[in-house]
Nucleic acid binder design. Structure first.
Length: 593
RNA sequence: GCGCGAUUAGCUCAGCUGGAUAGAGCGUUGGCCUCCGGAGCCAAAGGUCGCAGGUUCGAAUCCUGCAUCGCGCGCCA
């Protein structure tokens, strides 16, 4: 394929050209870092710009404009570049050749990776996300980790990584003693048969109410928890039942959201390893006993500012372990099982200190064992808090918004729009479309903003169907497919080569091509910064550009066969990029809606 | 007290590894279907980028201080 000889992105190509020219102009080795070429801030400046001359000028203590002129004079001839101008104080602006640009986009679309750089090279990354607690339904508090984590999951795969998605569910702990007590005393068989998880939730709430009046129940629950942990067969059977019930609930939500995991290794999977972790840390002198507990202390001059003077308890006075202990055991297991280059934890930002502490403790442990410092990158990819207008997300209070309720409401609203806009479609198809649109809207509304911003829960905003939303992107794709249907072309069947036949010269066509060419760059940026919103922004721009093109340019009744073929190819290129991009966000792509 | 984060248009937010005239959506006002899907397109109004310094050819972006708000800080996760 022709793509193999091309740099993966236009930016990379132009950056290389500038580097070559700078070397030829005698500036080789002046700078160790290249200033990458970027799209121009304004189309009147051309297609791409390089600001490299500013850096060179600064290093050489000369006029950047003169440097830019010298670089421009030394630029190698390349079919991509039709013209280069020096502008302002030293900008080097590139005008791309129309047919070359179109050919480049064709090659990218034909590439199995969509032109996205293979950054991972098959290396493994473990992503820890979603992680709900067993015996409770998923509520909107689980939404962000699930959706953002899954988008990262998809982005890492697109970037050439082997991903191990691990759902670290909360399947161990004192709540099981309470549930067991509740189960034996207050189980409503009929209610359980009707709604198993709902009955478990009710039993939990019931227990808390009863225990408030009768504190001996707490002792009973602790005893049952202890029995479970000691391997009591009856309690263990109940515990497994609770997990099964919960997994049915979770998987229902995951299926609808398009989320899947490779592993579901919950807290219980590491229970057996916890004493060893504590012993090892004690032996290594990283942890110490303190008033009957075992703690890791962080000195006031620790490299990591956040943990200075802090303390992490890894075994309580009563001998019980905490989630920090589990996290350390989990980390060890992941390293020995998958040898990942990276482990990404997707949780709420309020856990920043916790993960800094766990990572710092592990680094000390690692150093003590003489393991290499660059063996694995631990990344806490935290996201902002979902703030509710009123009331907390408390299972006990019962005022929590469940994830399925959110999805159902989204689908309900989508259905109303589908019924209004597409009354001709059969009922079953409208239902299918509404499901896709509703789910897409929910996912996109979370992904389209900076993950680290706090979000206030707002039905209307979360389920919007107009503007910068999933339905708009899906609609743009459906428009592409509609044109193709009228031309008797199935998705993916349109010949792409005519895109480069020189007929795409309209301003709207060039604008669209420029954006399509940037797709690999925006995927790389989203992956590198762990901000899927960068990809959302770019797809939104593509959809806008497509709709402008659609409005101003006739495809099916073009002026000539060449022009028609070129425009049909452009429609397919747009569809291919939109569809691939939506796939990375986990937003369903539809042929009609 | 220490740490993390935020402060950009009426509202909700992008943009933050420094680049040319700060963007979008919603809302408001006004246009566009004899034409491939109007979930769309075009246009207008709307901003001392919290405040004050600093760094430099250039700062919403980097540094320092301040103000306001949110979150976190030894036996919950």
């Amino acid at each position: 394929m022709t793509a193999s000889s091309r740099p993966s992105t236009v930016s990379a190509l132009l950056t290389e050209l500038v580097a070559t020219a700078a070397a030829a102009a005698g500036h080789d080795g002046v700078l160790d870092a290249l200033e990458p070429a970027s799209p121009t801030s304004n189309p009147s400046f051309g297609d791409y710009q390089s600001n490299h001359a500013f850096r060179l000028g600064k290093a050489l203590k000369t006029n950047p404009r003169a440097v830019a002129e010298a670089v421009k004079a030394a630029l190698p001839v390349h079919p991509a570049v039709v013209r280069a101008d020096v502008a302002g104080p030293g900008f080097l602006n590139f005008h791309l050749d129309d047919a070359w640009l179109a050919g480049h986009v064709v090659a990218q679309v034909q590439d199995t990776r969509g032109g996205v750089e293979d950054r991972g090279q098959g290396r493994t990354v473990v992503i820890d996300y979603s992680s709900p607690n067993v015996a409770k339904r998923m509520h909107i508090g689980h939404m962000r980790s699930t959706i953002i984590g899954n988008a990262l999951h998809r982005l890492y795969e697109a970037g050439g990584y082997r991903v191990v998605a691990d759902n670290h569910i909360g399947d161990w702990g004192t709540q099981f003693g309470m549930l067991i007590v509740g189960w034996r005393n207050w189980l409503d068989e009929a209610a359980f048969a009707d709604d198993a998880i709902g009955e478990l939730e009710r039993l939990y709430v019931k227990f808390r109410e009863e225990a408030a009046a009768d504190p001996t129940l707490d002792d009973l629950a602790r005893a049952e928890t202890a029995k479970l942990q000691a391997g009591d067969p009856d309690n263990r059977a109940l515990w497994l039942k609770f997990i099964d019930i919960s997994m049915v609930e979770f998987n229902g939500v995951y299926d609808r959201l398009g989320v899947r995991f490779d592993e579901t290794l919950g807290e219980s999977a590491y229970n057996h390893a916890l004493p060893g972790v504590v012993d090892d840390l004690l032996d290594a002198g990283i942890a110490v006993e303190d008033a009957g507990a075992v703690v890791v202390r962080y000195p006031d001059d620790h490299d990591v500012k956040a943990v200075r003077g802090k303390l992490l308890v890894i075994r309580k006075q009563d001998g019980a372990y905490l989630y920090g202990t589990t996290d350390l055991a989990t980390l060890e297991h992941r390293l020995s099982t998958w040898s990942p280059a990276e482990i990404v934890y997707v949780t709420d930002g309020r856990q920043q200190l916790h993960f800094q502490q766990v990572f710092a403790a592990w680094q000390a442990w690692r150093a003590h064992r003489g393991l290499p410092a660059d063996g694995v990158a631990l990344r806490h990819m935290w996201f902002g808090t979902l703030k509710l207008p009123e009331g907390m997300m408390s299972t006990r209070k019962g005022n929590v918004i469940r994830l399925v309720e959110l999805l159902d409401e989204a689908v309900r609203r989508a259905r109303a729009v589908v019924d209004e806009k597409s009354p001709d479609l059969p009922d079953a198809l409208r239902a299918e479309i509404a499901e896709a649109v509703g789910i897409g809207a929910v996912r996109y509304s979370d992904l389209s903003q900076n993950p680290q911003s706090d979000v206030s829960f707002d039905w209307d905003r979360m389920l919007a169907m107009e503007g910068n939303t999933a339905p708009f992107l899906m609609y743009s794709l459906a428009r592409c497919r509609s044109i193709q249907r009228k031309a008797d072309l199935a998705p993916g069947e349109t010949p792409l080569a005519p895109a480069a036949n020189g007929a795409l010269v309209h301003e709207r066509e060039r604008a669209l091509l420029r954006l399509l060419a940037r797709f690999p760059e925006s995927v790389a940026a989203a992956l590198e910064t762990q901000r899927p919103n960068l990809l959302c922004d770019h797809l939104f721009e593509i959809a806008q550009a497509f709709n402008r093109f659609y409005f101003d340019v006739r495809v099916l009744d073009a002026d000539s066969d060449d022009q028609r073929a070129a425009r049909l190819a452009l429609v397919e290129l747009s569809a291919a990029v939109l569809s691939r991009g939506l796939g990375l966000l986990g937003v369903p792509a539809l042929d009609r809606m």
